[in-house]
Simulated assay, not measured.
Amino acid sequence: MTFEGFPVAALDFYDDLEVDNTKSFWDAHKATYDNDVKAPMVALTDALAQEFGDAKIFRPYRDVRFAKDKTPYKTHQGAFVGVAPATGYYVEVSAAGVRVGGGTYHAESKDLALIREGMAEEKAGKRLERILRDLERGGFEIGGEQLKTAPRGYDKEHPRIGLLRHKSLLGGKKYGFEPFIHTPELLDRVRHDWRKLRPLVGWMEDQLT
C-alpha cells in the first residue's frame, strides 16, 4: 500500500472517540479505524523501514487494570521504531493532528545511570548540548521528565545540571492540522525530521549499547 496521507476521517474518528470512548462506538466505527488510521500508519512506517527499521504499531486498547481511567481505547495511534531500550523514533496521529519525536522516553535505573554518565562526561556532554541546540534551531521542542533537584551523586553546580536532571529526553515537533498531513508529503516530512533527530537518538544509543 502506498502512503497517501492520513484522511480527515482519521482525525474525525479520534475527535468522536474522545467524546464517546465506548465499545459500542468502537464496534460501529472499527472499519474507519482499520482503513483511515491503521492502514495509513502501516503504509507510512513501511515506507520508512528501509532507512530506520521496522516500526511497532501500538495496539489501540488501553491497559486499564491498574488505571483510575477505565476508558477502553487510546485516543491516538502511535508507531515506534526502537534502536535501544525505550529509545528511538515516534510518529502519532490523533484528534490534534500529527506529531513526531525521537529520543529516550523512559529509562530504567541502570540505563538512566549510563545516560547521565554520558551527560556528565565533558566530550559527550558537550556533544549532546550541541545536538539539542541544533534541534531547537530546527523547530523542535526539547522535553522529557525532569527531577526538581540534582540527581544523587551529582553536584547541583555541575555545568550540565539541567541535562542531568532529565529522567527522559526527547525532541519533538507537532504538525497539527497542516494540510500536508493529508497528502503523501507527510512521508517526506517525517523522514526529514527523523533524520534531524538521528543525532539525538544515536547519542542515546551510544550510551545504552
Rank of each mutant, 00 (worst) to 15 (best):
Y90C: 04
I57F: 07
G97A: 08
W26Q: 09
T104P: 01
V83I: 11
K167Y: 02
P179D: 12
Q77R: 04
L147S: 11
P159V: 09
G138E: 10
V42D: 11
K74R: 12
T149Q: 12
I142F: 06
V93Q: 03
A28W: 10
D193Y: 12
F13L: 09
F177C: 00
V64T: 15
A28D: 11
L48R: 08
Y90P: 04
D12G: 11
Y33S: 02
K167P: 02
P199T: 10
G118I: 07
K126R: 14
Y14D: 00
G97V: 06
V42Q: 15
H158W: 09
F58T: 09
Y33M: 05
L135N: 03
D193N: 09
D36G: 01
Y89R: 05
L112W: 00
G143T: 05
A150T: 06
D155N: 15
L197W: 13
I115E: 01
K156W: 08
V98D: 05
T32E: 13
K56T: 14
A86G: 03
G162H: 14
L164Q: 09
T75V: 07
K196N: 12
P7D: 12
L112E: 01
P85Q: 04
I142K: 01
T22F: 03
F180P: 10
E136S: 13
T149G: 13
D16P: 00
A39L: 04
H106I: 01
G176P: 06
A86D: 14
E117G: 13
H166S: 13
K110P: 01
T2Y: 04
V81T: 05
A96S: 14
L169H: 01
A39R: 02
K74W: 05
T209S: 14
F177I: 01
D134L: 05
G5Q: 08
R62I: 07
T32V: 15
S109T: 05
D54H: 13
K196P: 01
I131N: 07
E92N: 11
D46A: 14
L147G: 11
Y90W: 14
A67E: 14
A79H: 01
K56M: 08
Q146K: 15
F180E: 07
E92F: 04
T149V: 10
D134Q: 13
G82R: 06
E4P: 02
V190P: 00
R133Y: 08
D69Y: 04
A84K: 00
F58L: 14
H192L: 06
P72H: 10
L197D: 12
E4N: 14
A47Q: 02
W194M: 05
K148P: 07
D15A: 11
L11R: 13
K167Q: 14
L132A: 10
R189L: 06
Y61I: 08
V64R: 15
N35F: 00
G162T: 09
Y154L: 08
L163H: 00
H158S: 11
H29D: 05
E18S: 07
W203G: 00
D111G: 00
F52D: 03
E4H: 15
